[in-house]
Design a protein around this nucleic acid. Structure first.
Lengths: 220, 220
DNA sequence: CTATAATGTGACCTGGTGGTCATATGACCA
DNA sequence: TGGTCATATGACCACCAGGTCACATTATAG
C-alpha cells in the first residue's frame, strides 16, 4: 500500500508519477525497473518517492489493485449476454471482453502480464496470490462445464484449467503484442479480421487442430 | 564465440566454468546474471573470464550452440518410428523425445527457455534467430500436414504454427517445472501417469477441449 | 638456462542501484 | 506575526555491476 502522503497529492501529480511507474514496469519488468528513472521521468525528487511508497514493489502492487478496480468497473455494465450459456461461448465472451478492457489500458496490462508471467514464477508469495484468484475462478467454471457435459471429462479438471490458462495467455499475448503496433488499437481489435483470428483460436481450443467433420465458421 | 583461450583449457576447468555459467543463467536469466558470481562460484579470476569470453552474452550463445550440438547427437540414433507417419503422431513423438532430451540436461534447457521465452522478446536480434529456426521447421511441417488433409485448413498456417508453438511451450514448461521436483526425473518422465498427462495434452491439442464423440484413450 | 609467448590475477575504474536524512519550503492556524 | 507540521529535496551512502590493465605466473622452445 502506498503511504497516505501519496493519496493526499493533487490528482495530476499522482497520475504523472503513477504513469511513469507503469511505463517503467512495462519496459523493464519489476526486477529491472529503476526507481531513479521513475523519479527522473516523473520529475520528482528521490526522497519524495520514498515518502509515497515503501519501494518499487509497493507501486507495482498498487498498480495491480488499480487494474482490479478498473476491471470491476468495466465489467459492471457488461453482463454476459446469457447467464446460463454454453461454457465455451461464455469463455469466448470473457476473452473478447477482457481484451477490450486490456486495450483500454494497454501499458498497465502489459506491465502486469510481463511481471506476473515472466518474473512471477521466480518471485515471492505476494504475486502468487493474484494468479491463484483467476485459477480458482477457472476451476469452478470447468467443474460446472464437465457436470453439464460440455467439457471432455476424460481430461481432468486440473489439466483443463492449465489448458484454458494457456490459451488465455496465448491469446492475450498475441493481442497485446499485435495491438501495440497499431495506430488505432480499438479499431484494430474490432476489425473483422482480428475478430476472426480470435474466433479461430478459440475454435481450435474447442475442437482441436485436426481436420474433422466440424468446420470453422465465423460467428457474429 | 568464446575466445580460443577457452578451448585450450583443460576439459575439467572448462566444464566447471561452463556449468557455473549455466547454473547462473538458470537461476537469474541473462540480464540479471552476474559475471562476478560466475567467477566466484567457478573459482577463477575476473580477468580470466574476459580472456575466455567477450561478455556474458557470449557464454550464453555458446550454451545455445552446445545444446544444439547435443540435441543433434541425441536425435541422431533416434529416428522417428515411421517416416511417413501422421503429422500429429510425429509431433507427439517429437515432443516426447524432446522432453527426454531436455531432462538429460535440465538446467541448460531451463536456462535457455527462461531467457529465450522470457527476455528474448525484449532482446536484440541475436536471440531472434534461434526462435526463427524452430518456427520455420514447424511451418514446413504444417504446410505438409494441411496438404495431406490432416490439419484443418480453415485455420491458416501462421496461426497453426503459433498454436503448435504454444502447445510445445506449455508442455515443456509443465514437464520442466514438475520434473525438477522429482528425485528421479527420468523415471518420473517415463512413468505411466506422466506419459498419460502428456498424451492428454496432445490429445486436446488435436481434438479440442469440448466433449465430442471421440474420447481420449491412452495409447502405448 | 634463457627468452618468449600464453595464461592467470585481483585491485581498480566508472556508473548505476536502492535507500536515507538533514535541511528547505510553504500552507495553515493561533 | 510566529509557530507548527506535512511535504519536497538532492547530496550522500554502501553496494554491486561490467569491464580493464599492469603485473605475476607458468609453459614452451631454442
Amino acid at each position: 500500500m502506498p503511504k497516505p502522503t501519496f493519496f493526499n497529492l493533487p490528482e495530476e501529480k499522482r497520475e504523472t508519477i503513477f504513469n511513469a511507474a507503469v511505463e517503467e514496469f512495462a519496459q523493464y519488468g519489476l526486477e529491472n525497473a529503476s526507481t531513479n528513472r521513475i523519479v527522473k521521468t516523473s520529475g520528482i525528487a528521490k526522497g519524495s518517492f520514498y515518502q509515497y511508497f515503501e519501494d518499487k514493489q509497493d507501486v507495482f502492487m498498487h498498480m495491480l489493485d488499480v487494474i482490479e478496480q478498473k476491471e470491476k468497473e468495466f465489467f459492471k455494465d457488461k453482463p454476459p449476454p446469457d447467464h446460463n450459456m454454453d461454457t465455451f461461448r461464455f469463455f469466448h465472451w470473457m476473452v473478447k471482453t477482457g481484451m477490450e478492457f486490456g486495450l483500454s489500458h494497454p501499458r498497465m496490462i502489459q506491465a502486469a502480464w510481463r511481471v506476473l508471467l515472466g518474473e512471477g514464477l521466480y518471485y515471492g508469495q505476494n504475486l502468487a496470490g493474484y494468479r491463484e484468484k483467476t485459477k480458482k475462478a477457472l476451476t469452478e467454471m470447468i467443474e460446472q462445464a464437465i457436470a453439464r457435459g460440455e467439457v471432455d471429462p476424460s481430461v481432468d479438471v486440473k489439466l483443463a484449467v492449465m489448458i484454458m490458462e494457456t490459451w488465455s495467455n496465448a491469446i492475450s499475448t498475441y493481442v497485446l503484442n499485435e495491438g501495440i503496433k497499431q495506430k488505432n488499437v480499438l479499431k484494430w481489435m474490432r476489425s473483422p479480421k482480428t475478430q476472426e483470428t480470435i474466433d479461430k483460436l478459440l475454435y481450435v481450443m474447442e475442437y482441436g487442430l485436426r481436420k474433422t467433420e466440424s468446420e470453422f465458421v465465423s460467428k457474429p
